[in-house]
Simulated assay, not measured.
Amino acid sequence: MDIKEFSESAKGFTKSPLGIIALFIVLVYGFASLVVAFGQNISQHIAPLVYFMVFFPVLVFFGFLWLVAKHHRKLYGPSDFKDEENFLKTQISSAASLAAAISKQPESGGDLSRVQLDEIVELVSNTKQKHSTEKWKNRVLWVDDRPDNNIHERQAFEAQGLEFTLALSTDEALSILNREKFAVIISDMGRKEGPQEGYVLLDALRKNGNSTPFVIYAASNLPEHKKMARERGALGSTNRAQELFSLVMGAVNNGS
């Protein structure tokens, strides 16, 4: 490899913290090797250099393990995540699904105003999920005895990388939660079991010490119902798809 090729390769390494670390390691080890091979009058100091060349890779290895374990999100530069076409597809898919969810709500009348469309675009464009290496932090439990009513909402979240587990009842949800962890729980309010099953589930979770963020997605958007939900330990309560999206994505990102 000539000087020009090496400089181009080195330039590529400087685009991220991980690359800079790798470049520094290569240069240090390279200079040490040159000194040992071509250095003059270093016979009295050869032992420290040999020890350095033997133990330096070991120190680098354990240092790298520590960085990956404790600061893995800081090891990449912006260019490592640059996939504008995929990002655009994700945003369009999420916005389209969210628009479909809003349009089916009674107050919309089936048509979205320019203000609502602008709100959707702004909301989705400002949402950037922090993907976690821990799978449960990207998973949501949705409790509703009529899950087909929420297909568009789930599609909006799935476009952002979230995965869903569905439960049709309070008992089923509690059984699932005994085995698995989730970043967020979404629940309707009234089910076949009773008119306030959302609160029944919420109270049972908080009584058992489960503090998973809990969002109620029901028919009411009255201020007093929102206040009551928060007082009982919920993150929020809404009947608006865009508010649900904001609450859930906020909880997911804050917990990542």
Rank of each mutant, 00 (worst) to 15 (best):
L205T: 10
P223D: 14
I25R: 01
L65T: 02
P48F: 09
F62P: 01
A95G: 08
L18T: 01
A101Q: 11
D145P: 02
A95F: 07
K130H: 10
P78H: 05
V252A: 01
A234N: 06
A229K: 09
E172H: 06
K74I: 00
T170K: 15
E193V: 03
F13G: 00
G198Y: 05
A183E: 01
R139P: 04
G161Y: 05
L244S: 05
E84I: 10
E119H: 11
S79I: 13
M249Q: 09
L59N: 02
K135G: 00
P48R: 11
P147G: 06
V36F: 05
V54R: 10
V50Y: 07
Q40P: 00
A219L: 10
L123P: 01
Q40A: 13
M189N: 08
V60Q: 03
T238G: 12
H71V: 01
E122A: 07
M228C: 03
G233F: 08
N253E: 01
A10L: 14
K207W: 02
F55P: 02
F38A: 13
V248A: 03
V121W: 01
K227T: 14
S220C: 02
M249R: 03
A96I: 12
L162Q: 05
N138R: 04
K11D: 09
A101P: 07
E224H: 13
A167M: 04
D145G: 05
G110P: 09
L222D: 10
Q91Y: 07
I120W: 03
P17S: 04
A96V: 15
K181W: 04
G63C: 03
Y29N: 04
S187D: 04
E107D: 14
F64L: 14
D188C: 10
P17E: 01
E84T: 10
L98N: 03
A95H: 04
P57T: 08
L235Q: 11
K130I: 14
H71M: 02
S9M: 12
M228L: 15
V200E: 14
K137D: 07
V50D: 05
S237V: 02
E231W: 01
F64V: 12
L222C: 00
G77H: 04
I92K: 12
H131K: 10
G250H: 05
E163G: 07
A95K: 03
P57L: 08
V248M: 02
V115F: 11
R240D: 15
V121R: 07
E231N: 12
L174E: 08
A229C: 10
G19V: 06
A69V: 03
L49H: 08
V115W: 06
E134D: 11
I176S: 05
F182N: 03
Y199N: 07
R230F: 04
N126R: 06
G190K: 14
F157P: 01
E153R: 04
L88C: 00
K128A: 10
A234I: 09
R179I: 08
Q129N: 05
F164Q: 07
H45A: 14
G194K: 08
L112C: 07
V121A: 09
E180K: 15
A183I: 01
R146H: 13
S113V: 05
F56H: 06
Q129R: 12
L247R: 04
Q44T: 09
E163W: 03
A69M: 05
N210V: 15
F64A: 08
K226R: 15
T238H: 13
R73I: 02
H152S: 15
A159K: 06
G198L: 06
Q160E: 11
A32Q: 11
R206T: 09
